[in-house]
Amino acid sequence: MAILIKQVELSWLDRTYVWPILKGMAITLGHFFRQLFTPTAKRFTIQYPEMKKEMPEGYRGLHELKRFEDGSVKCVACFMCAEACPARCITIEAEEFSDLNLTQGFEEKRPKRFEIDLLRCIFCGMCEEACPKDAIWLRKDYELVGVDREGMRYGKWDLLNTYAGLDGKPVLTTDPKPSTPSRKEVACS
């Protein structure tokens, strides 16, 4: 296909080159001064460690395992997320409660081990969609670093606490003693 080249008729002033160069220089100088007098907060560049970018809604960052009010895991170890995961990075080991009379948030099954290998995770959000209990969320933290491969395998307690500091919740290290009533008590009342 032939390419049509548009011939531009330059005016006399433009053909001296001096005038267009001056115009260009005016543009660059304008940018220079505009940038010089813009306060740091309003510049395009985000000064990273001091300033952080506000991530948009729907951003899929680091995972969080949600918990109930009393601090027990919402996850019921149904393996839906592990099945949905295209990267196969979720490892779950389920456990039953030792005392079936006690429920934790009315559930009887919970993960003993819940591990995400974040080096394999592709942050697609399939686990979030698959979860019937809304127990796993991908939130906005993008500062994900580790010094070795093992350090990037986040376990149950890591995942439960990923956003604890941000949300002002306590950091959990053990499953709480259930404060919710046992099934018997529920049945009695």
């Binding site: 660059t28 100088l29 940018h31 220079f32 010089l36 740091t40 510049r43 395009f44 560049t45």
Partner: peptide
Amino acid sequence: RGAAMIQDRI
């Protein structure tokens, strides 16, 4: 620095 300012960088 000048180049950065001209190009709206820092």
